[in-house]
Amino acid sequence: MNMVEEYASQQCKESQAIPKFNVGDTVRVHFRIVEGEKERVQVYEGVVISHKGKESATATFTVRRVAFGEGIERVFPLHSPRIEKVDVIREGRARRAKLYYLRERAGKAARVKARRRNVQA
């Protein structure tokens, strides 16, 4: 590990504190927002369409949601101290790492299939 990564990794969260989810999952991100003096938690819900940088210090993930007919994407730093927690609401089955194709779709076509757990004969 070089000096740059070493320095940056000091700010990483403990591995059990890193939010766990996969690309394609629908998540609820609890994000702390500071408004002047006050602090409040904003909940942002959407589909994870990209996760860059594994668990490195500069890793980010993108959450897409369609609000009032307009697609909104927010990029969160994975290790941000402002992220309180990330709840996975629905696990999705994605066949690629980046779901950018969802941008060109709307309505029913813009869904991700649900992942089926423990499918065994």
Binding site: N2, V4, E5, A8, Q11, P77, H79, S80, P81
Partner: peptide, 8 residues
């Protein structure tokens, strides 16, 4: 110069 990264 060692390189760039990001900092909280």
């Amino acid at each position: 110069k060692l390189g760039m990264t990001r900092h909280f």
